[in-house]
Nucleic acid binder design. Structure first.
Lengths: 208, 208
DNA sequence: GACGAATTGGACAAGTCTGTCTAAATTTGT
DNA sequence: ACAAATTTAGACAGACTTGTCCAATTCGTC
């Protein structure tokens, strides 16, 4: 395991103040001196960790957004599959969980570092997703007021049932991810789909 | 300021490992010895802080849920007002922000403590909200599949636009709270309201 | 095989923090 | 006003961290 990866793990587990360079070195399988040779001091190492995680997470997110169903055959199924890809590969994986935790714990100590993250990450993510939803609306698949609001609400809905797990640092099971995505997408479409079926039955939800 | 309040502030700002008993004592306006006399050691003090915050937050949440609009005159306006009360008095206030941060930062270190929080807090909150929504559905105001899912999605929606602010430890402005609540409730009602108006206009959303 | 670069283990100083102790000062109850 | 309980300031030992220094060893490359 590389030094930065080990450092990410220890910073997340112990917090910045509680993280111990000896432990990071041991977990990375190198000597402490090597850590100092490569990264200077604890603070520089922390910044390197955040930049590394931010970069990898963003790469994953935008690669996944590229697979957004622009010409859906079955809008519900396609959006659910897209959401599951996004959650499994970007939100619930190691990098995503670590980055969230570091931001929550140390965001106030490094405002400029995390302002950068906010612009490059969530800012561009919302924007890209909003553009996709706007296109779906233009093509007549959705009836959306403000695409930016819709994008944020979409992300909130599909993660609604995972938030407590995230808060406590856990990793949702594959089944929980699918369940939350299914319920979230169905509610999203109830709110925003172009109404065509006159039947009044509310869509049955996956059991929570 | 009491010792526990000062400790909550310092634990949140510096993390458990970075929190310094001298600083807590100074912020509380007492001597270090008094802190030790009252709370034994650092770990016991931390547990006392979490219990205190949990208790106060839960009290506020259930007091607010008691004001849920069971017989709404204007469902949208009533739900928005309820959401703003909940957010301002329970989610965005000092106790709410501190408790969330401590859970996120130290949840893995004290599993039993936070399992207790989870049952007493979110568990009962979802259950209570779900019961209210079920009642609204029974009275013909809503068309809901699973009330538990609806309750979690409601909370996710009305906080959708505040999540980044929460992540970075900030406090949303009154206007942001109102905006997020309005957009969230409108989307929630688009998805779950008993359809009666045949007009196809999507509700205009508050500008983000 | 030989040479330069990188890595290692360990020692080290300087600083911080926790938790205890004590004697003096202050507050409280009566 | 007095006695008991609490609080205070400060010193203190023990442990732990960070970051540096250095001599010995290993590694990569020619």
């Amino acid at each position: 395991m590389s030094v930065v990866d080990a450092a990410a793990s220890v910073f997340c587990r112990e917090g910045y103040a509680g993280a111990n360079i000896d432990l990071i070195a041991a977990e990375a399988g190198v000597s402490r001196q090597t850590v100092y040779n490569h990264h200077g001091d604890k603070e520089k190492l922390f910044v390197a960790v955040v930049r590394d995680l931010t970069e990898r997470c963003n790469a994953g997110i935008f690669a996944t957004i590229a697979s957004f169903p622009d010409q859906p055959t079955d809008l519900e199924a396609d959006l659910i599959a897209f959401t599951v890809r996004m959650n499994r590969n970007c939100i619930c994986n190691r990098d995503g969980r670590f980055l969230r935790k570091l931001i929550q714990a140390e965001g106030e100590r490094y405002p400029e570092l995390f302002a950068e993250w906010r612009e490059q990450g969530p800012g561009r993510t919302w924007s890209a997703l909003a553009a996709r939803f706007a296109r779906l609306a233009f093509a007549g698949h959705l009836a959306i007021g403000d695409p930016d609001v819709a994008a944020r609400q979409f992300l909130a809905l599909v993660n609604a049932e995972l938030q407590i797990t995230f808060m406590l640092g856990g990793t949702p099971t594959e089944e929980e991810v699918l369940c939350s995505a299914t319920n979230g997408v169905r509610t999203f479409l109830s709110a925003f789909a172009r109404k065509k079926s006159p039947a009044g039955k509310p869509a049955a939800l996956v059991h929570a």
